[in-house]
Nucleic acid binder design. Sequence first.
DNA 1: CAGGATTCGTGGGTATCGCCAACGAACGGG
DNA 2: CCCGTTCGTTGGCGATACCCACGAATCCTG
Lengths: 146, 146
Amino acid sequence: MDNPPARLRGKPSWLISQASAYGHRLVTEALATENARRYHYSILAALDEFGPASQATLGRRCGIDRSDVVAMVNELAAQGHLDRTPDDADRRRNVITLTATGRQQLTRLEALVTSAQHTLLDPLSADERRQLTGLLSRVVEHHGLP
Amino acid sequence: MDNPPARLRGKPSWLISQASAYGHRLVTEALATENARRYHYSILAALDEFGPASQATLGRRCGIDRSDVVAMVNELAAQGHLDRTPDDADRRRNVITLTATGRQQLTRLEALVTSAQHTLLDPLSADERRQLTGLLSRVVEHHGLP
DNA sequence: CAGGATTCGTGGGTATCGCCAACGAACGGG
DNA sequence: CCCGTTCGTTGGCGATACCCACGAATCCTG
């Protein structure tokens, strides 16, 4: 890009949008190494932290639409990273369970994503990275509650 | 959203992505009030700050693809916010010029976008907003050069 | 305990975004 | 004068993030 207008350069939403685009690109490219996508990482992380869950719960936790969860679970199941089994206690639901290979995959993706963070925040010191993370967390939490 | 995994909550790229989604939504909704879209604001801002320019130049300045600039200029021209005239000095080019009504439109959009910034950064103090803007500017500038 | 509201998985659709390929017209440098 | 490059334009691709509708199942409440 070539000398963006000051009106844009001064708008937090524009800066965030630009930074998001870079981060998006970095993470997507890194994950492509393992034939994974961003949503895959999110879902695997949620399963690892909270244990087996229904697709709707996964969607709510990761901020992914139910319809999109279906596609992600399809792909991850096809790769053997998770199991999808009907819930006996509530037959509307599927119980999604992380497999052993899924856990290994998460470990690989975690390394890739973490390294992308370093690339993204390259110009910032460790202190500044913490500042940025803290400020953004406040913003995100604030808009997550309603 | 409902208790996102710690692995996500700690990743700057995820936080930025979430914040970007909120900002995107806020700005888009605000601009819809005037039947405008985000790219419209960018292009009007570039024209206001740097004066008349070719479509390719506008695209480079705002980080918009040439093909997408065509559509935006079509829409803005249809609304009378800018003029598209062939460049006599270089007949490959169109010279895009902001009209009086375009300048008024930019003023309206500016107010809408600015107000959306306040909503987005609601939980932060004025100092913290400046911090955030500064940190993000460093990140964006760093990745803009190569 | 019956019936209406709600939830779940799934399929389908929509709009935007960022990008890339190709084209003819026009310009510029060697 | 020719070759490479730029410009506007068209068309298309893939990912993202939505939204709606449906049938099955569950729940809540009177």
